[in-house]
């Protein structure tokens, strides 16, 4: 099977406030129509996602994080995940399941955006646009770095402050 290059998955509930930030990121990326980049916007991850992932060489998950303080992008591994079946599948669990069923996984990263309010309705985060823009920038740098020099990769995977504190 000839693998495609990049898959970027935004995860979140569009009616749960900041939970939708990850999906806003991939919607912004979709408008840029980056070459070799496929976008998916999902309310949640499910085991069937493994069948999408196996078609790609690199994948980036983008999700809101209630414990996060800043926009971050870090490499993701599948080790040590043994999650029981539930409605809450983490990116690591999906990678672990993919590895167990196919023997390989794509190179993976997780981009997280700090979430404050997960209440019902659209996100009212005054810094939302800034957070989304920062995550988009980091992801673009990462993608560019993978086709350039290793030095760029270091820059891309660092944690970047978002200036979101009130």
């Amino acid at each position: 099977m000839e693998k495609k290059t990049w898959l970027i998955i935004g995860i979140g509930n569009e009616l749960a406030g900041d939970d939708a930030l990850g999906r806003q990121v991939v919607e912004s990326l979709a408008k840029k129509a980056l070459p070799g980049v496929q976008i998916l916007s999902l309310p949640q991850l499910t085991p069937e996602m493994t069948e999408h992932l196996r078609c790609y060489e690199q994948v980036i998950f983008v999700d809101a994080d209630v414990s996060g303080q800043e926009v971050a992008l870090r490499p993701l591994a599948s080790e040590g995940i043994r999650q029981p079946f539930s409605h809450l599948w983490s990116p690591q669990a999906i990678l672990a399941l993919l590895e167990m069923t196919t023997g390989s996984v794509p190179q993976a990263w997780l981009a997280t955006l700090p979430a404050r309010d997960l209440g019902f309705g659209k996100s009212r985060n005054e810094f939302g646009a800034e957070l989304v823009a920062e995550a988009v920038r980091l992801i673009e740098v990462l993608i560019e770095s993978q086709t350039a020099t290793p030095r760029h990769l270091d820059e891309a995977t660092r944690t970047v402050g978002s200036g979101t504190s009130k």
């Binding site: 995940i81 043994r82 079946f85 672990a96 399941l97």
Partner: peptide, 8 residues
């Protein structure tokens, strides 16, 4: 291990 990961 009695879950989908154990099965996999």
């Amino acid at each position: 291990k009695r879950n989908i990961f154990g099965l996999a």
